[in-house]
Design a protein around this nucleic acid. Structure first.
Lengths: 237, 237
DNA sequence: CGAGGTTTTCGTCTGTTAGTCGATAACAGT
DNA sequence: ACTGTTATCGACTAACAGACGAAAACCTCG
């Protein structure tokens, strides 16, 4: 990385500086339940409490690069299907040791990715969260809320689902993520009409107890796209 | 503010520190056009370019307090009807002098608030923006996008409109903010059904050229509320 | 190979929401 | 009163979503 010339650097910015940390709220549906990836702290403060993975920011890396680095080393998750910045918290005593600003990211892992986790990391269902360290539960709440909202008006489901899936599997994923049951018929119809998912011409291997084999679907795009909201506020077509 | 005991502070956080600045993207409809409040830089770098108001963060204040302080001093806007955090940028050379992290906020000012501005600040219509300093135009783009999205599925319009208004006035505000024309009949009907706005029993003074006097409306709530998105993904009622 | 069980998918009905547009209401001025 | 003007209402149409029963496509077992 090219260093900034010292002449330019030594100029006129005399604002206070703060250590800055990045945190990752990684969500995924594990065993049919929406879960968050937590890491057990080995040292004080909050020793042996569960915390979001993360850490400091090196002088030459951006926040997003920093969170990718921490996720790759501390916790073995390299295959995030989606990541976006969530929020930056600045409460003065959020870390009892010193003032640290924290920027959290929301990451999503497909339900069929089962990377090996280190022994001090584990998935925790969000409806049975243990006590967490620092202010991390605020980030977790915000991440869940944002995921649920975006499931409704974007195609963000692609980051929770395998590349190919049946409507039943998708229904389970959505129900787990949203926290309530939804109807598989309507789910397929609505997401198809919105061009969010499309049927492949393949069919799932027939299940254990027989039954009609399910058609396989895939997400049309794996980039985040937003469906038009309500119509009054939509430009004429 | 109670100081952290030195013993606790001198511990184990050896991450790099960075100056942190807060920036405000204040939007409002001025003279029928969506505009952003900019401040003309007096010093290098980007001397005499337009920039978002903002500045450093004091050791005992949170980011939101810092941006409020900067807005109150640098630029005379104390009556933001709404403010929310937008994003944190971290490009290494976004400031040529040194690495500075920046957290931007989105602020909204009602169209009937006409606070006096200092001579080095001005409203700029967003469709005729001048060249801006640093990476500020990224924040402006993000602010506009977020406002437009939230106009569709929240009641955030309360922060752009006067306390009481006619449907025509509201239609002009929405059209200016969204960038396209909308139908006043539908606007009234949809926002009323969603319980976002409600008619008062007052009526506007009749206009210059005659015509039926318009009914006055107000926003039901001036706290941000989100309307339910699409129905498949909505819990049963 | 056919009957019964299981799972998925299709089709239809109904209610809600939104876009369009013409008709009507309520004013000012002449 | 008549006209011009602005605002509001009402009716029609289209699109979308929730519900649910019927049909399709597979299995296993007798």
């Amino acid at each position: 990385m090219a260093a900034v010339p010292a002449a330019a650097r030594s100029d006129s910015i005399n604002w206070p500086s703060y250590p800055h940390e990045v945190l990752a709220t990684v969500l995924s549906v594990r065993a049919g339940r929406l879960s968050v990836l937590l890491w057990k702290r080995a040292r004080a403060p909050y020793r042996s409490r569960w915390a979001l993975p993360g850490g400091g920011v090196e002088p030459t890396e951006r926040l997003r690069e920093a969170i990718a680095r921490h996720l790759a080393t501390k916790v073995d998750v390299r295959e995030l299907a989606y990541i976006e910045q969530l929020a930056t918290h600045s409460a003065v005593h959020r870390d009892p040791r010193a003032r640290v600003l924290a920027t959290a990211y929301l990451g999503l892992v497909p339900s069929d990715v089962h990377a090996a986790l280190p022994s001090d990391a584990a998935w925790h269902p969000v409806d049975e969260l243990p006590a967490t360290a620092f202010d991390h539960h605020f980030f977790i709440d915000a991440a869940i809320a944002r995921l649920r909202a975006k499931l409704s008006y974007t195609n963000i489901g692609f980051a929770l689902a395998p590349l190919e899936f049946t409507i039943s599997e998708l229904r389970e994923l959505f129900s787990a993520a949203l926290g309530y049951e939804i109807d598989p018929t309507n789910l397929a119809r609505v997401l198809t009409r919105r061009h969010v998912i499309a049927a492949t011409n393949r069919t799932a291997p027939s299940g254990l107890a027989g039954g009609r084999p399910a058609a396989m679907y895939q997400f049309v795009s794996r980039e985040l796209t937003v469906t038009d909201p309500f119509a009054v506020l939509r430009p004429p077509r």
